[in-house]
Design a protein around this nucleic acid. Structure first.
Lengths: 391, 391
DNA sequence: CTTGAATGCTCAATACAGTTGAGTTAATCG
DNA sequence: CGATTAACTCAACTGTATTGAGCATTCAAG
């Protein structure tokens, strides 16, 4: 991800305002409907300040008046909520063979989605295809281009040449360019670039099961296995933007030590099926096989449970998340089976009586998870305070 | 750690100032000696704003004028540096059998340290002992109490009752109290509470080998094995303050899968030695055995290398840190031997050509690492922007 | 039903902190 | 030696948030 977003450090009047605007929007998102006095209490700002900011937001169409509150005595508050039509974000996922795109509104609802095939992955082809795809999907969604907040782009990681680079999954022709800047220039809007797992994790936070969670880990079944960690509401990116490569950690499996994604991933189950002559290229295929109780698939699930459980113990003890979420390009049925099947270790910091959420949950599934997550990255930007801080 | 520090969200004039002060101090610390124009460029503030802030800091005695710069043409800048005497922090480490304390100055230099035995771990005994110890060490260091910025306290984790709770290492009598608030009230100063590994990691950043690193992982050899992760200059705490319990993750060792700290920790080496009738309670004992090439110790080192290497691969792929640092209550000689002995996996996001630092390094070692780290937590506060942000 | 307390909110004045623009000083370069 | 570059200061300005007075609306107690 090459940490694009300009890291601004000092606070001044302008940046304070933008910071507070993001905060107020975040509070409104979190609460659903909320009055100004409550926002002020939650944010440590004066009522007057919140009042000024909300009237700005109202004028900009980002929030709407949603009636009066009732509880208790005293003057009932005016309640505000996000305006779904207040802004939109495009999400784009670039794969070696296709481009996926989707549009999310400010409330995180999907407005449109598309899949276009790619003949080549060179920069020109991708850029031209993307421009046409953008126009197409914006028209299809019937929204005004002015209301686009930006675009999120998901590309195969890891970024830069690392020990995990792998010509099969990487995009040739993109090694020597910063994709964030490239797309920002060509699309003419702010662009965030992330890997699939991080984007999918953000989707859970914006419109999924993790809307009220600040610290969680998301295990993403893509081609391999990815991890997105959100800590205190922020994506954990790592020094070079490559954090979360969980697929490559060594885990025990049937007495041996193997890389996690060699036994727990979409590719691994498809390989296991193929060895028995079963072809299951799509998520729907897998769903069908699962519903039919296919023995090869069931055996794979049994085998995968142990290393997956080990991986979750590792995640819990290293990150101490509120929960671990399983999602991505496997059918919901299989994800749910895995969640039910896995015996979580008792030797974990996550084994505590005062938990508010289960240790393991299923999140969004299906092929579009990462694409919509890319858009969620942009939507999230609106809700996050802007004064970045580095020591 | 019970995330004490009041999480303020909104920005106003007062908080902006304090934020910018922290930022400017952080820049000065990072650079060593720096002029106002450079600070302005690094922070995105105007020269005038930086000028106002530095003159405040100068007046408060936090920084000092350190002559003029020379390079290039134009008016040479006035260079500022941290004033070591500008402030002090007390670090305290509470163990079941003793209290350690140390004092650090603003530059992270150790001014004094002490070890006092404990007869009991009940709240009263510890609190009373701590108050006397504080007075004693402040007198010994010969500093003014007014210049104390606060205290950092290291206590055995994990915090709260979890699946890892273990009556042998926990402190009885502290389950139902928030230690941060308790100590803040009784010591009459701001208090930060952390576990040993996190504190030690912060020590590396304030006065150790990681002074210019923003994202790194610190493997801490205490009783067991702990992990402190600093990401973007902040400690990664986890949802319940228990992140970094790396000692309990499953790793392969000699064909079996075991909890990491059962084979890689001070306790594990001491147990191995004891089984052969060798008693080595202190760090110095271990150093002596290592220098003598003791065969039991050497065998243990050989055995530990494989699981430790696996753990480092996990850390690298999950956190993508700039480096991994080994430190804590083992002699420097053994840490260095381990760093040299470990064969790092090539299948890691950290295996990249453009690295600025080695993948594995040794940090501070010895019994006081965590104690001084506790003080470093407080010193660090001075250097960090204050506008906290939660979405 | 009246009165008072509690609560949400507005308006106008104020304060704080950073920015801007016009100098001043001090070094290097040609 | 003059032109140029760069750091810095001074004073006026601007943007945001805060403060305090006051109004509106609701509930509850008498």
């Amino acid at each position: 991800m090459i940490t694009t977003s300009d890291i601004v450090l000092g606070a001044n009047a302008e940046r304070s305002r933008s910071h507070n605007r993001g905060m107020v929007l975040g509070q409104i998102r979190l609460a659903g409907r909320i009055g100004r006095a409550d926002i002020a209490r939650a944010s440590g700002l004066s009522i007057q300040a919140v009042s000024n900011i909300t009237s700005d937001l109202l004028e900009d169409g980002l929030i709407v008046d949603r009636g009066r509150g009732t509880a208790g005595r005293g003057h009932p508050p005016v309640l505000y909520a996000l305006n779904p039509d207040g802004g939109y974000a495009i999400g784009v996922e670039i794969r070696p063979d296709a481009i996926f795109a989707g549009i999310l509104n400010l409330c995180g609802e999907t407005i449109a989605s598309e899949r276009w095939s790619l003949e080549s992955t060179d920069r020109d082809t991708i850029t031209q295809t993307l421009l046409r795809l953008r126009d197409h999907i914006v028209t299809k969604a019937g929204i005004s281009e002015r209301k686009l907040l930006g675009a999120g782009v998901v590309m195969p990681g890891p970024f830069g040449a690392t020990g995990l680079s792998d010509s099969e999954s990487d995009l040739p022709g993109w090694e020597d360019v910063a994709p964030g800047r490239w797309f920002a220039e060509h699309l003419g809007m702010p662009v965030l670039v992330e890997n699939d797992a991080n984007a999918a994790a953000m989707a859970e936070r914006i419109s999924g099961i993790a809307q009220s969670l600040d610290t969680f880990a998301f295990l993403y079944f893509g081609r391999g296995l990815g991890l997105g960690v959100i800590a205190n509401g922020r994506l954990m990116a790592g020094a070079f933007g490559n954090a979360g490569e969980i697929g490559h950690i060594p885990v025990p499996c049937a007495g041996r030590t193997v890389p996690l994604e060699s036994v727990v991933s979409r590719l691994s189950v498809q390989r296991a099926l193929q060895q028995q002559g079963i072809d299951a290229p799509s998520t729907a295929d897998l769903d069908r096989l699962f519903a039919a109780g296919d023995p090869v698939l069931m055996t794979w699930l049994d085998t995968a449970a142990e290393p997956l459980s080990a991986a979750i113990t590792i995640l819990e003890n290293l990150f101490d998340p509120e929960t671990v979420i399983l999602g991505g390009a496997l059918p919901q049925s299989i994800l749910e089976h895995l969640v039910g099947r896995i015996r979580l270790s008792g030797r974990s910091v996550s084994e505590r009586a005062d938990r508010l959420h289960p240790r393991l949950m299923t999140g969004a599934s299906g092929r579009l998870t990462a694409t919509l997550g890319a858009a969620a990255l942009v939507i999230n930007q609106a809700f996050v305070p802007k004064i970045a801080d580095l020591p």
